[in-house]
Structure formats: structure tokens, C-alpha cells
């Protein structure tokens, strides 16, 4: 009804002939605005490939990805990069923080790269929600894993993207901290009307989602049932 992220017959194959690997296979899914969808799959099921395709980080063999009704692969490379910066926030398993600048700079830097002015009051609010208030001047390597992932989440949220794509966001965290971080992510995403698509192998984590998509051998099914 109010679809923000959609794939149409999306395929990604690697290699040719007998060595061909079908990482993502004829996938048509749609994720609604404001939804928290978990894409669950074992390692090698094609889930990371799917997320990379959703985020325009990788090009499909066939099919398309639409974000807010814009087929993203019809954009030129520069336009796609700009589109990605404005519309999508990424959270990865490895936090990918820049170690030579402090927490605040890590959060604000991507906005500056896009030649936009950072909405400081909004960012302060996020920092408050993520309980990073007293850490903004710290260097990333002085923080715990959980804190570093909070910074990465704050960075993803700071540019007010429509969609957050998270790839095993708690892969490097213990289970206790994982649930806390997911709860925070979920609350902030709900609060700002954003959409969250999270990739995970962990069904314990996935139960926090509004909706679960299962990916197995490149084929996506809706919580056990096939998605038509």
C-alpha cells in the first residue's frame, strides 16, 4: 500500500555454466514504510547479497530494486551514490568507524560529505536516545563494541534516511547487548517513521521484527510461506 522498498524479480548470479551460483533468485518482495523487516538466513543463503542489492551497493543480474518507486539501477552511478546517501543509512557488522576522528565527527561526517548542513538538534536527540551523550568527544577505539555500534547507528540515523539497512548489526556484540541495541534501533526507527530492513542469521534477534522474511538458497519466502 505504502511501499518504500520493493524488488521485482531480482536475480544475482555469480559465475557461469556449472559453476554458476544463484545468490539471489527471482526475488519479489516489498517492504512498507515504517516497517521493521528481518531477513533471516543461514550464512551462504544469499542474504548479504540481497541487502547489498537493496542498498544499490551491488548491481543485479536481472530484475530491479525500487526505492520510493524509483528504480535505483536506472540511475547513473553518481546519481545512485547521491540517492543512496540521501535515502539509505547502513549499519554493518563491523562498525566501520573512522578511528582518527571522535564520535561526534564520525556521526556528522557523512552529512558534510553530502554538502548538507547537519541538523544538530536532531543529532543530539539521537545521541541522547542512544545514550552517547558523554561519549561524543571520545575516540572510537576507547569505546566498547556496544557503544561503537551505537555510534554507527547514530551515524546511520543522522542523515534522516528513509531506510536503514542493517547487516548483522549485532554480529560483534554479546546477546545481552544485541537485544538492547536492536531495541534502541527499533525505537528510533519507529520514532522517526523510518523503515528498517535487517539481515541476520539469528532467529532470537529476528523475533524483534514486525515481519520476517526467510532467505534460503537465494529464494525469499515470507516467514516460511513463499512470497508470490
Amino acid at each position: 500500500m505504502n511501499t518504500i522498498l520493493e524488488t521485482r524479480d531480482l536475480c544475482k548470479y555469480y559465475g557461469t555454466g556449472e559453476n554458476q551460483v544463484k545468490a539471489v533468485c527471482h526475488t519479489s518482495i516489498s517492504i512498507e514504510k515504517g516497517e521493521f523487516a528481518a531477513i533471516v538466513g543461514k550464512s551462504g543463503s544469499g542474504k548479504s547479497t540481497l541487502l547489498h542489492l537493496l542498498g544499490g551497493l551491488d548491481t543485479p543480474t536481472s530484475g530491479e530494486v525500487r526505492i520510493g518507486n524509483q528504480p535505483i539501477f536506472s540511475l547513473k552511478e553518481d546519481a545512485l551514490a547521491a540517492f543512496r546517501r540521501r535515502k539509505i543509512g547502513f549499519v554493518f557488522q563491523s562498525f566501520n568507524l573512522i578511528s582518527s576522528i571522535n564520535v561526534w565527527e564520525n556521526i556528522v561526517l557523512p552529512i558534510g560529505l553530502d554538502n548538507k548542513k547537519a541538523d544538530t538538534s536532531f543529532i543530539r536527540e539521537i545521541i541522547g536516545i542512544l545514550e552517547l551523550n558523554d561519549k561524543i568527544n571520545s575516540m572510537p577505539n576507547t569505546l566498547s563494541g556496544g557503544q561503537q555500534q551505537r555510534v554507527a547507528i547514530a551515524r546511520a540515523l543522522a542523515a534522516k534516511p528513509d531506510i536503514i539497512l542493517a547487516d548483522e548489526p549485532t554480529g560483534n556484540l554479546d546477546s545481552k547487548t544485541s537485544m538492547e541495541v536492536i531495541n534502541l534501533l527499533k525505537v528510533s526507527v519507529k520514532k522517526y517513521g523510518q523503515t528498517l530492513a535487517m539481515i541476520t542469521h539469528d532467529e532470537e534477534l529476528a523475533q524483534m521484527a514486525d515481519r520476517i522474511l526467510v532467505i534460503e538458497d537465494g529464494i525469499v519466502t515470507e516467514d516460511g510461506k513463499a512470497v508470490s
Binding site: 542512544l130 545514550e131 547487548t177 538492547e180
Partner: peptide, 23 residues
């Protein structure tokens, strides 16, 4: 926890299969 208080209620019952967690 850092931002939350977590309360665990543990039983010794029949348990729940992992695939049912979400359901």
C-alpha cells in the same frame, strides 16, 4: 543494561522451538 532494565523469567517447561520464536 546501559539503556534498559531487563527482566528475565525463566521456566523449566517444555521450551519453544527456535523457529517459533517470532510466531
Amino acid at each position: 543494561l546501559v539503556s534498559y532494565l531487563k527482566i528475565d523469567i525463566e521456566d523449566e517447561g517444555i521450551g519453544i522451538p527456535k523457529s517459533e520464536y517470532h510466531n
